[in-house]
């Protein structure tokens, strides 16, 4: 069975600017995947590409095994979307709005269906409330109900918990978890709230500057936290494959004067640094990155976590201190 969403090597240009360079992402049925990244990393553009709203330069996007640009209109009904801004209509009641949306999705629903949907998101007491009179939290929940109106097999949510109080947030996360586990819905949750990700996500992808810098099961990525090191560099890094005792040293991220590397499970750090220095890496300082999702996120996206003690200082002549 085809994955609800698979993106590989996605490169997207907006005007004359390339906004996505190399994005990969997969969302399986029954799985909640978190899409993380700083503002401007390309999350919303990735969602637009997933929905077939823009044409990629290279790479491919597959929605249920089909290219969304060529897929039939009906295929889009299999996807529910909660965008960052809800875009609701102020002059309609919640019930009328959901019935209108069901018609657009080609799956009209009656009053019972509306009641069930509103109940699912906790708005069952307000079917006849004008959306203009809804609070921010109610609007978010109505946007979620709108996404569920056609019984989607893939649910894409962009910052869905914005404006929700803690109880509403917990309720929504519980709903996402239920949808994935009980109905086999694939969920792509795009959020800045790492607590939400830790609570419900099975898998994450981290975007930074238009690239996927990490992608995989959340527990696997968290488990490797102790093997990530931030290197302060005195110059540029030579372009060559890195191997220390046959175990790769992965270059996760590089900025001006800094690099984030992940060592293989059995690689002794001192051995790795010597090998890198020998290969021409101008390493000046090495710091171990902290564990946990926040540290992982910060290190992957180029921001510094709270400083950890330096594990090695490198003298100008290459000796480890």
């Amino acid at each position: 069975m085809a994955l609800p969403l698979l993106i590989e090597g996605l490169r997207v240009r907006r005007g004359f600017r390339t906004v996505l360079h190399d994005v990969r992402l997969r969302v399986a049925a029954g799985e909640v995947c978190g899409l993380l990244g700083p503002n401007g990393a390309g999350k919303t553009t990735t969602i637009a590409a997933a929905l077939g709203l823009l044409v990629p330069e290279t790479g491919h996007v597959r929605l249920f095994g089909e290219d969304p640009l060529d897929a039939s209109d009906g295929m889009r009904a299999r996807v529910g979307l909660v965008p960052e801004r809800d875009g609701l209509t102020d002059w309609m009641t919640a019930a009328d709005y959901l019935q209108y949306w069901a018609v657009l999705q080609g799956r009209p629903i009656g009053p019972e269906g509306v009641t069930a949907l509103l109940s699912e998101v906790g708005l069952d007491a307000s079917p006849d409330l004008l959306t203009a009179r809804c609070s921010q939290g109610m609007r978010r929940r109505l946007a979620v109900a709108r996404a569920l109106v056609a019984g989607p097999e893939l649910l894409i949510l962009d910052e869905p918990t914005n404006g929700l109080d803690p109880r509403g947030r917990r309720r929504l996360l519980g709903l996402l978890h239920r949808l994935a586990r009980q109905r086999g819905v694939g969920v792509l949750l795009c959020t800045h709230l790492l607590g939400d990700v830790e609570r419900v996500c099975d898998r994450i992808a981290v975007l930074a500057a238009g690239r996927t810098v990490a992608e995989g099961p959340l527990q696997d990525l968290l488990g490797r936290g102790g093997n990530r090191y931030r290197l302060r560099l005195g110059g540029s890094v030579p372009k060559m494959a890195l191997c220390v005792d046959s175990a790769p040293v992965r270059l996760l991220h590089q900025t001006q004067g800094e690099a984030l590397v992940e060592l293989g499970a059995n690689v002794a750090p001192e051995t790795a640094w010597r090998a890198l220095l020998f290969a021409g890496w101008p390493i000046q300082e090495v710091r171990r990155e902290a564990g946990g999702l926040e540290a992982l996120y910060l290190s992957l996206t180029g921001a510094r976590a709270e400083p950890q003690p330096a594990v090695a200082d490198v003298t100008p002549d290459g000796d480890l201190a």
Binding site: L53, E84, G87
Partner: peptide, 17 residues
């Protein structure tokens, strides 16, 4: 206008041709 209000994205993502 709908794009700026965020309403165009969900509309284009529906099954409506």
């Amino acid at each position: 206008g709908e794009r700026e209000r965020g309403a165009l994205l969900p509309l284009l993502a529906t099954a409506a041709p």
